[in-house]
Amino acid sequence: MNTIYINARFLTQTVTGVQRYAIELIKEIDKLIDCGEVDGTNYSFCLLSPANVVTQLELKHIRHRSVGKLKGHAWEQLELPFYSKGGLLINLCNTGPAFKRNQVVTIHDASVFSYPNAFSFAFRSWYQFLTVRLGKISKRVITVSNFSKGELIQHCKIAAQKVSVTHLGIDHIHERQAAHGTLEKYGIESPYVLAVSTMNPYKNFKLIFEILPEVQAQNLNVVIVGSQNSKVFSSHIQNESEAVQWVGYVSDEELKALYENAAGFIFPSLYEGFGLPPLEAMALGCPVIVSSRGSIPEVCGEAGLYFDPHHPQEAASRLVEIASNPDLVQQLSTKGKEHSSFFSWNKCAKDTINIIMNAV
């Protein structure tokens, strides 16, 4: 039997886009084994994680072992190679052991190269080294958009034939029940525009503050979901306004309620490897106003209203359109639901399994 190990360090981390990808992909692979589309008699899958797990997955066929005494990067570099020897190692969250060749790695973007000043010196230096190294020694590299594939080839000199693209899925947002009383819990007044992201400088949240007069002129508030991480990011936004409400990190059920009740969703990012939040908003019928940079046009297609993130007035005019044109809102809502339905974790898992089997 072929043993395939999965680097499950992501189970020790707060769930953002990268961890969401790993969690949903693992659950879907488990389903593929259950229905016989992946041969569970010939392939054995095993999650390996440090002991400090914060997310538990209910899986039928994929085992989970907490191994080693270390945690974080030290565990990944020093202990994980030992526990995964004798099998192929799958890394889903940008990192992996720098000196193991029998592995496959998902690298979501090349932001440490394209926007180096957005990260602390230590973080940037380590990830630049590790991304190039993993691209060189891994059997296969997976990324999440054609945009990211081009970025990795350009910055890390990875051979094009070594890189495969698998788009993320959206099914998870439909599996949750929206939490009742979410707006009351956070004291949110409708109508509001929602923004969801980590507070990385290249996420361009300063644009929202630059267009606040126009937002307020439409009697809209702004609700921002996301946590700041000053250990990673070299700077972060420090703006206060009565029209802007920061709610920090919320549960999946609360996030669904915020999407469903929003008048619109804004995503002003200067750079994205994929960009899951606007797709989540679309899936729930929330009209999206999105930046025209990075992978965003590839992901959102013709179902979003675009603006140049370097021109705040363009974003403001898009918001005015949303606030003043109910027919446009309905049109975007319908288009968004249709477009998002093409993104499934089942397809992502099948494409990923094919890559893994070729690597085995």
Rank of each mutant, 00 (worst) to 15 (best):
N261R: 09
N261H: 10
A262W: 08
A262I: 08
A262T: 08
A263G: 09
A263R: 05
A263F: 02
G264A: 05
F265N: 05
I266H: 03
F267D: 06
S269W: 07
S269G: 03
Y271H: 07
Y271N: 01
Y271V: 00
E272S: 15
E272G: 12
G273F: 08
F274N: 07
G275R: 15
L276E: 12
P278N: 14
P278S: 12
P278V: 12
P278M: 15
L279Q: 03
E280N: 13
A281W: 12
A281E: 13
M282A: 09
M282I: 04
A283G: 06
A283C: 13
A283Y: 09
L284H: 08
G285N: 09
C286G: 10
C286D: 15
P287W: 02
P287A: 04
V288I: 11
V288N: 02
V290P: 01
V290D: 04
S291Q: 02
S291K: 03
S292P: 07
S292I: 00
S292C: 06
S292E: 06
R293L: 00
R293S: 02
G294C: 10
G294M: 07
G294V: 12
S295E: 11
S295M: 11
P297R: 02
P297K: 04
E298Y: 06
E298M: 12
E298H: 06
E298Q: 09
V299K: 13
V299E: 14
V299S: 14
C300D: 04
C300S: 03
G301T: 11
G301F: 07
